[in-house]
Every structure is written in C-alpha cells, then in structure tokens.
C-alpha cells in the first residue's frame, strides 16, 4: 500500500482522482488539499463519494510526506510553494498544463505568459502510456497530457507511425463543460452554457502543440464546447499518401493497439456507434479510435473519443501510476462504462 496526496482536490479532476483511488487496492489517499475548502469534508464537494471516505480538505502546507503526489492545478503562480510540495513526494503526477510543453517559446505562444521555471520544461515524462510506457516505469515526474490532446494523439499516432498520411492535419476537438473546470464563471452559467456549440478556440487551441509533439505532424486545432457535461471527441482531417489502402489503415491501427488495455479500434459497418463517440465511454478509462477513408480523394478522417476526466485526465494518471509501480495496468480502472445512459 502506498500513501497518496492530492493537491487541489476540490475540482472535477481532483474528484475523479479520488473516485478512482478510493477504489484502488494498492493506494491509500492520506491527504487532499484545497485552499478554498480547508477543514470541510471532501464528500461535501464530491457527493458521489459519500460514505466512501471520512477525509477533510487540508491546506497544502499541511500535506505530509507521501509516496505519490498528484497536482491537479497549475503551480505557476507559486513556484516556490510548488517546489516545496514536490519535495514531499517520491513520485509526482502533474495533471495541470504546467509541464506539458517542452519549449518556452511554444509555451508563451499558447499560454500568453513566460514560463517562470523554463528549466523544468521537457523534464517530465508524458503520462500517456500508449506512447511512453517504458519511460513511465522509472519516471519520478509525470505530466499528464490534455484531454483533447490524448484523444487526437491516440487517433493519429498509428497513421503517423506507419507513414500513411501527409503531415498537415486539422483537428476539431469537441468537449463537454467539465473540461473547463469547476470554477464558477459567467460563461458557465446554465443559461449561457446550455445548448451551446461554442467555438471557444477557433484557431490554435493549445493542445495542438502536444499533438504535434507526440505525433510529429503539423497540427492545427479548433475546439468547440458542446452541450454535454463529460466527453471529448477529436476529429482529425488528414490526407492519405498516394497508394494507401483501407486495409493498410486498419492494419496500422491493429498493430498499434492490439495489446493496449484501454484503446479500442472502432470503425464499423453497422450499428449506432460506428465511429468513436464519448457517450458510452463516460466514467471509463477507455479511448476509442477509428477512421473513415475515401480512397478516391485520399481524404482520411481519424476520430478519437474518451471521457475527459478519466482517460483524458485522472484515469490516464492512475494508469501511469500502475505502470510506474509495476501493478497490473488496469488496477482500479476496470469500470466499463454504461449503456444506455
């Protein structure tokens, strides 16, 4: 049994980490911090956890030394505090965007500020098991990718790795409202959010840099908020290289994911769910990837779907933890989703 602390447990990602780790047979959550809710019960903020834990939130400064620490939010405005907290854990998983990019210039472009600790960029192992499993086995600092970046990367990676597509790719990311966090704001009022198809990032969404880094492709990305609470669907438009066949595309996906416990290839001829969509994945750690191909024009659509809070965040972190600790990769992650829902 290892001891775990969650720094920033009051948000949606923090709640999802708690949900997964409270059901994990090898993990004991010993501290959950929240500056805003210190002293309050965690199941007050996360009512789905009622009866599962007596924990109360503590100030970050009261978090004890632990084996593993999860950061859910950014530490860029308190780099000394973040560094001090990091010293209290043997292994750190950072689910914020602080360490996802390796290049300070790219960070400035996408986040509109200088990175206060640029020397840390590029030092974290990406928490994406399908691409970095071997590095994760020995990692001490892990940066979990963005939810839409994970969906798009897993959809595109087999095609890029097999050399089947031209480098220019346009990604259209669709995401539910939980992707924008638990902080109240005018944009998240029900009256403003309900029913939307909001292109909140019409150009250069920040996850495009992560997808480019993972796949080597030239990615441009838009992002749209949709009328759902959870879920991501990333639709990537690409062009197949001349001579590419559907059989070769299928073979590339099959080869990439034959042994992956949480990636399913879905490109079916019949049924209601022929291509990936998040509805049946909610609560699960699965990512479904698939494609549609027009051999006459070469147009190739790659699609990825997942639950933004699970495979797009907390689940990916727990899967990475399992790899790091040498446990079965699906430990604590066997929920299969619901249908119908």
């Amino acid at each position: 049994m290892i001891s775990i602390a969650i720094i920033g447990g009051a948000g949606y990602i923090g709640g999802e980490l708690l949900r997964l780790l409270l059901g994990h047979p090898e993990a004991e959550v010993v501290a959950v911090s929240s500056t805003r809710l210190a002293g309050r019960r965690v199941d007050g903020d996360h009512p789905n956890l009622r009866g599962r834990t007596p924990l109360t939130y503590v100030e970050p400064g009261a978090v004890p030394e632990v084996d593993v620490m999860f950061f859910t939010g950014s530490g860029l405005d308190d780099v000394d505090g973040r560094a001090e907290l990091r010293q209290r854990a043997k292994i750190v998983f950072d689910l914020s965007s602080d360490l996802r990019l390796g290049d300070p210039e790219l960070f400035r472009f996408h986040y509109g500020r200088e990175h206060p600790t640029p020397e840390l960029l590029g030092t974290a192992t990406p928490g994406l098991p399908e691409l970095h499993r071997e590095q994760l086995r020995v990692a001490e600092l892990v940066s979990v990718p963005g939810c839409m970046a994970t969906a798009a990367t897993l959809a595109l990676m087999p095609l890029a790795r097999a050399g089947l597509i031209e480098p220019a790719v346009t990604v259209d990311g669709r995401v539910g409202s939980s992707g924008s966090g638990a902080s109240a704001g005018e944009m998240n009022l029900h009256a403003e959010r309900s029913g939307v198809l909001r292109l909140f990032a019409p150009l250069n969404h920040r996850h495009q840099a992560e997808i480019s880094a993972f796949t080597g492709l030239e990615v441009k990305m838009t992002a749209t908020g949709v009328d759902a609470v959870r879920g991501v669907q990333a639709v990537a438009r690409t062009t197949a290289k001349p001579g590419t066949t559907e059989a070769a595309i299928r073979a590339a996906y099959r080869k990439a994911y034959a042994d992956e416990p949480f990636v399913r290839v879905v490109a079916q001829k019949r049924g209601n769910y022929r291509l990936p969509e998040p509805k049946i994945l909610l609560g699960s750690n699965y990512c479904e990837v698939g494609f549609a191909f027009d051999p006459d024009s070469g147009q190739l659509l790659a699609v990825g779907a997942l639950d933004n809070l699970v495979k797009g965040g907390a689940g990916n972190a727990v899967q990475s933890l399992n790899i790091r600790m040498g446990w079965a990769e699906d430990t604590g992650l066997t929920f299969t989703g619901l249908h119908p829902m």
């Binding site: 299928r250 099959r254 290839v265 490109a267 079916q268 001829k269 019949r270 049924g271 022929r274």
Partner: peptide, 13 residues
C-alpha cells in the same frame, strides 16, 4: 454453408 456471421472488428455481415 450460407450461414451468416459478424466480424468482431468492423461488424460487417
């Protein structure tokens, strides 16, 4: 002969 089955991957008949 003539029996119908489904492919588990593409769900084709």
């Amino acid at each position: 002969m003539n029996s119908i089955l489904e492919c588990g991957e593409c769900m084709g008949e």
